[in-house]
């Protein structure tokens, strides 16, 4: 009973900590340069807040998000590339911090599978239609109008 009770409390605490902070975070950070600003906004929307895990660090009110935004800003000003900043984040938090999976060996399948499935669907469709077209001549069921 104790274990499940504490599990539940942990669950509730986690849940509450996640949902309680549903209040908005409006990020008013400005960077000196327009281009940097755009990159900043793009990056902060691409990185997941690890505390409120369904928000980007741009939207999350968590303290951690604010710290991470600060880090992004500092690195942009220091001249790091988007790639370098993402890698820096991934090094610390793992791939989960990226909202969009990078294109590497472990995630290539995620990007390719939809395309492959579409091809598969196309093939299936063609096959069925071919098969049924052949049957049309022999089929004497009534033609129903639209």
């Amino acid at each position: 009973m104790n274990v499940s009770r504490s599990l539940m409390r942990t669950g509730i605490a986690l849940l509450l900590s996640g949902l309680a902070a549903v209040a908005l975070a409006v990020d008013t950070t400005t960077l000196p340069d327009e281009k940097l600003q755009q990159r900043y906004e793009k990056l902060t929307h691409e990185l997941r807040c690890m505390k409120c895990q369904n928000n980007s660090i741009a939207d999350s009110p968590a303290g951690l998000a604010a710290d991470l935004r600060r880090d992004v800003k500092e690195q942009l000003i220091a001249g790091k590339s988007d790639e370098e900043i993402r890698d820096w984040m991934v090094q610390r938090y793992g791939n989960v911090i990226l909202f969009t999976p990078a294109m590497d060996a472990s995630s290539a399948w995620v990007w390719l599978l939809p395309g492959l499935a579409a091809l598969g669907g196309l093939v299936i469709g063609i096959r069925i239609v071919r098969q049924r077209s052949k049957l049309v001549e022999q089929d004497d069921s009534e033609e129903i109008s639209r």
Partner: peptide, 9 residues
């Protein structure tokens, strides 16, 4: 390796 799939994908 763990990945995460968000709105971008």
């Amino acid at each position: 390796k763990s990945i995460s799939v968000g709105p971008g994908w």
